[in-house]
């Protein structure tokens, strides 16, 4: 079963994702996609590690090529988050790429190997600001990725200030 969780900033997406997997009896893998560039990322990572403490997750860092993530067969996976995975794939030293299809097919492949997959993404296209080319392309790509995941996911849940709103399927907890 695959569940996509979306929503704005600090609206309780991670907490909900952890709750969905709290009853899972097998191995639980947390795929972290955020690269620790600086202090702010390190703080976010530290806060999330603290939040996950004692909840039985093994952490796997995977910044790109999600298809190849070394996840044991039949495990439950919490992937956080699509926004970072996309940025890592998209803005490379060699220039900008358009990796939405690669990411969607990689996640679909991952969903076949896992018993439960919970993917956390972000809503970034609703501030009405006209951005320069790179950011505008990022908004377009994350939109495509989100639509692509939602198409194969069993459940799509939007979080609004901590309240889960099922947009497709049902709330699996």
């Amino acid at each position: 079963m695959t569940t996509l969780i979306t929503g704005g900033s600090k609206c309780g997406k991670s907490r909900l994702a952890e709750r969905i997997l709290s009853g899972f009896a097998g191995r639980k893998i947390y795929i972290a996609t955020m690269k620790p560039y600086g202090d702010e990322e390190r703080k976010i990572i530290a806060r999330h590690i603290l939040q996950r403490e004692g909840k039985g997750f093994e952490t796997l860092e995977c910044y790109t090529d999600i298809r190849d993530a070394d996840v044991p067969e039949g495990a439950a996976v919490l992937l956080e988050c699509v926004g970072n995975l996309l940025a890592n794939e998209m803005f490379t030293e060699g220039g900008m790429t358009y990796p939405s299809e690669k990411i969607v097919s990689g996640l679909r492949e991952l969903s076949r190997r896992t018993k439960m997959l919970v993917i956390v993404t972000n809503q970034v296209g609703s501030d009405g600001v006209r951005y320069e080319e790179g950011t505008a392309a990022y908004i377009a790509e994350i939109g495509k990725v989100n639509c692509g995941i939602a198409a194969f996911a069993d459940n799509v849940i939007e979080c609004v200030y901590g309240i889960p709103l099922p947009l497709k399927g049902e709330l699996p907890c």
């Binding site: 704005g8 900033s9 600090k10 970034v124 609703s126 951005y131 950011t135 901590g162």
Partner: peptide
């Protein structure tokens, strides 16, 4: 609802937006 856009470059804007999310919860 203010958190569904691109993460602001300005640190103060970013922290405000995150605080709005947390207080909203």
């Amino acid at each position: 609802e203010v958190g569904s856009g691109i993460v602001p470059i300005d640190r103060g804007e970013r922290e405000w937006r995150e605080n709005v999310g947390r207080c909203g919860c």
